[in-house]
Design a protein around this nucleic acid. Sequence first.
DNA 1: TAAGATTTGTGCGTATGTATT
DNA 2: TAATACATACGCACAAATCTT
Lengths: 90, 90
Amino acid sequence: MAAPIDYDSPIPPYRQIATEIIRDIESGSLAVDRPVPSESALIQRWGVARDTARRAVRHLRELGYVYTVPQRGTYVQDRSTHDNDHQGGE
Amino acid sequence: MAAPIDYDSPIPPYRQIATEIIRDIESGSLAVDRPVPSESALIQRWGVARDTARRAVRHLRELGYVYTVPQRGTYVQDRSTHDNDHQGGE
DNA sequence: TAAGATTTGTGCGTATGTATT
DNA sequence: TAATACATACGCACAAATCTT
């Protein structure tokens, strides 16, 4: 519902954005292999810089929540097996 | 020796820098637990931007060549055992 | 075939905050 | 107090690949 970034929080903006997206993934709003919001979308939705949006996505990737296809987009990773927590098993 | 970045190469600058540092590690110029060149040092030595220097260091970290101590610095990782190559399968 | 929009990749410049020395 | 070093964040630009028209 468009909660704004809390700049008073000790949690950095990119983390707040990542947390929100994780919620959408866990809740099922974002299904497996569905695209997560693009960098542009995140920039507009949160009013942050691209650097921040990219950090958020990178964080999600490191946690194993998403995977990125160059020049295409970033999609929800299938974590159903829970075989890979965030080391990039595969 | 200060080889310059080859902008005509398909290999991005941060990779060229990382490759050079890897050479220094493998050759022994940079010993285990010794600090690798700082961001500022890389910026001056290669004439690149902070982001590029950061990318180079991050890349080395992901490859397991170095480890970073928050708020301290980045140091050469001990890879003698070769126990950890760089888990990222994929 | 071409143009345009979209998306990620890469690079540069700058600033602030925090921790260490 | 100051210098050093990293993390984070903001701004901007162009390239390459993809997708649509």
